[in-house]
Design a protein around this nucleic acid. Structure first.
Lengths: 354, 354
DNA sequence: AATGTAATTGCATTCGAAGTCAATTTCGCC
DNA sequence: GGCGAAATTGACTTCGAATGCAATTACATT
């Protein structure tokens, strides 16, 4: 064998090895060995912009294919300090509206090369446990559609994890948030209901911890007051179908008869409210009672409901949330920011509008 | 200074350091340094069963608290070869039934210390890209509610990643699967519809790639045939609301008048079908037409529908899927297995039953 | 052919925690 | 006080890929 100055690793035409080497998966080192190059070279061949000759690329890629090599994202994350993981925290997926949001976030994240690590909360009290897990997984950022206290938000800063609220925000605490300001729409809606001679209003509110729900109710009440309507009764709700049913019953009990119009803080309750009106109270909708909601969730457009509602621009909101989040992943020092998008009025047939 | 045989690292009362050390997060080594112990000791203190004196535990835990230390799950995964991540692949979250499944899987996984990495498929053709990502993240296992070809299933074996199908299975290919056999229920349902004098049947099928949908249709058709009913028309559907609406129209066109009973391969279509019957064709349900579905999804119990349907035991199915999957994570050599649970008949008011 | 420059490539180190093994300490007990 | 067994502890290596830096090669120019 002729002695060479710098003996280079020879490409070893390993006989068979149909796949994986040692019980597990092939590593970049295995590929390097087979291709007769260094591990660094393999790494570079799998990194888009990196420097590598086309001959090298071919050799490495062939070896990789032969061994069934797939880069290990875990090992990569360890050294690059980027997991390409975003945690999405959601309270109850059984809500009508959240699945749509999640689907949108997931597919848009995927398009940007980001994976979604899902955290669902059975109860609000689980949040601390969930956050513990979030820190452990070194996610690049978090999108939360669940309530977080100011202290909890503080933890994000301490751990250096960017956070964006989805359809929520904290008063008096600067945090990134994307939400839908529907007060304009709500005001317009109220105005038209009043113009159509509705005078006796019921409102079914959202749960107390939903700032967006509060805003919806407040905007409605304010506009009603401005227009001189004082016969307004507000009952609490929890964003679910039953709350809508019970809400209408409660309103009817308190007023001794049904209100002329009911504003529900979301679609699920509006749907429950419509069903209660029709099937429990025997009221024709919208002839005897007008009902409106918020969100524009899927079922709101079903023929049985055709809800008049304010649709949230889910796609644009998801996009805004991700963009805002990823910007802060790149540049953590960016200041908190709120993106407020506006909802669109959907004129259904659940309300008699003037 | 008295010389000691084996000088041990002294606990250094570092002055301030409110949190994190070097721009980032504290590591087990930082904690070790501060507590005056070895890194191994820190690791052990965070592992439940490990050997460590209570004095050590206290010291380490205090140092950890002071530094705001959180174990790095990424680094841990690298060495333990366990990510505690399970990928869940889902086609369209906008389907009524899947969000419930996802929520259930997520919360049950969470209870077992497992995190869900979500993969949603905008289109079926994205599957290969998604699988590529699945391999990269070294998930411990995969639960798929999306269709996979036999070759794709083969990749799981090659990569050594356990797979469990949810509400799906492959004929002629042994794979783990959990699904709901509703043929018993379907047969019973059909029988009662026939007993109640229904003679002219329409069936709105699911998409061709849904094996479960096929079974539902087949069981129904078979039983109808057994009972001597031959006036059965099957039209295709895609599991969504619109398919239900269009399906009924199509059936009506083909039969020149509406069928007496319609069996829909899922609830979303049954709901669309009911709406079409009532609002497009002016048929009272169930007086003029009986409609039944499958799944027992949330809206199926709303007052507007009160669907007669076969409810899937989502909780038990999720539990079975996870149990089956995790068993194979522990012991990869376990053979494929199918768990078939049975659905429960929910008697609503959408069908006139005998 | 010699030289200079740009493009490749490999070595060695790094990320953070877990586990092996051997050294040491603790403790019970005579 | 001394012995042996059991518990505790630390040094060192490992997981798999990325990257700074230095060494080398390729290529253009005179």
């Amino acid at each position: 064998m002729a002695s060479r100055k710098r003996p280079r690793i020879q490409e070893k035409p390993q006989p068979e090895i149909p796949f994986a080497n040692n019980g597990g998966r092939a590593t970049s080192y295995d590929v390097a060995l087979r291709a007769g190059v260094s591990q660094s070279a393999v790494s570079r061949c799998f990194k888009p912009g990196a420097s590598a000759s086309s001959k090298m690329r071919d050799r490495v890629m062939r070896a990789a294919r032969e061994l069934g090599y797939t880069p290990n994202a875990i090992a990569r994350s360890l050294i690059t300090r980027r997991s390409n993981l975003v945690a999405v925290i959601i309270t109850n997926l059984t809500n009508l509206y959240y699945p749509e949001v999640l689907a949108e976030l997931s597919s848009q994240a995927s398009a940007r090369g980001i994976r979604v690590l899902l955290f669902t909360l059975p109860t609000e009290s689980e949040i601390d446990k969930v956050l513990e897990q979030v820190w452990q997984y070194r996610v690049d950022g978090v999108i939360s559609a669940a309530r977080l206290s100011a202290e909890q938000v503080g933890l994000f800063q301490k751990h250096g994890v960017p956070l964006v609220f989805y359809n929520r925000f904290l008063r008096d605490t600067p945090v990134c948030a994307v939400f839908c300001d529907q007060s304009d729409g709500a005001r317009m809606l109220v105005q038209r209901l009043v113009k159509a001679e509705h005078r006796k209003f019921g409102i079914i509110a959202g749960p107390p911890d939903s700032v967006v729900g509060q805003e919806r109710v407040k905007a409605s009440v304010d506009r009603l007051t401005e227009l001189g309507i004082t016969d307004v009764t507000v009952v609490p709700g929890a964003y679910d179908y039953e709350s809508g049913v019970n809400g209408l019953h409660e309103l009817t009990r308190r007023l001794h008869r049904p209100p002329q119009a009911v504003i529900c803080a979301n679609d699920a309750m509006a749907i429950g409210c419509m069903d209660a009106a029709r099937y429990d109270l025997g009221l024709e909708v919208p002839k005897k009672i007008s009902i409106v909601g918020f969100d524009g969730a899927g079922p709101s457009s079903w023929a049985s409901y055709r809800l008049t509602t304010l649709r949230q621009p889910v796609q644009r909101m998801a996009e805004a949330a991700l963009t805002m989040l990823l910007a802060r992943v790149e540049e953590p020092s960016l200041p908190p920011e709120r993106r407020v998008l506006s909802g669109a009025l959907v004129e259904g047939t659940s309300a008699r509008l003037g």
